[in-house]
Design a protein around this nucleic acid. Sequence first.
DNA 1: TTTCTCTATCGTATATTTGCGATGAACGAT
DNA 2: ATCGTTCATCGCAAATATACGATAGAGAAA
Lengths: 115, 115
Amino acid sequence: MATPKIEEFTNEEIFLADTAKALSHPARIKIMKLLSELNACVCGELVNLLPLAQATVSQHLKELKRVGLIQGDIDGPKVCYCVNVEMLQKVTSDFQNYFSKLNKREKISCKPKTK
Amino acid sequence: MATPKIEEFTNEEIFLADTAKALSHPARIKIMKLLSELNACVCGELVNLLPLAQATVSQHLKELKRVGLIQGDIDGPKVCYCVNVEMLQKVTSDFQNYFSKLNKREKISCKPKTK
DNA sequence: TTTCTCTATCGTATATTTGCGATGAACGAT
DNA sequence: ATCGTTCATCGCAAATATACGATAGAGAAA
């Protein structure tokens, strides 16, 4: 089974994991960066800026759209993609919160013989 | 091919994507949280705290260890896991930096007819 | 209408991920 | 030396992810 038993995890855990999954490929990390720098970008332009075929880029865009990090707006025959500001802010603050909690406790470390 | 053409991406993009991949499962999100809260944790205890079999938990721990987010130290027959503070701090600041750059530009949004 | 461009989706191939039972290795205890 | 505990790894099955060529559909342009 590749299906995780998500029913045992909290919504927050699932949300963070799902968002991390959307960012778990260099192409998608780069797409977010490009869309931010260019403010918005037509799909075909992204294809030129990435070492991937058009069909593959389209799939990566779909994954980012799935979690709401970007949105695509039809502009004639083209599609103009841009960052979804609200979602990006939510993701930013949720991860900031997650990491800051993780960073709180660690003072004592394990014993030295690392496996 | 499931192999991304990573040779075309920067080391930073690959690092962020790889770290996100390590956090792209609710169990691993939760393991980080548990290790932080408990300061350290024997593997068997994590198995009790997660809805997964021992073999599966061990695999998730391996993935987190792969990217250096945790370390496991042998304690007799048991293994004590804990957060790798240095790596966690690096990851935290790298993601903070990434997100803050993404948040800079978005003022103008796309046209309204979302696809 | 016909043609061209642009992009999403389909179909396919391959690789990876997820999960778990079973096994083995390491260690402490008896 | 033997047994029990703990955990990593193996082996397998099923689901996902990645990549791309081919195709379809929507619109612009002729």
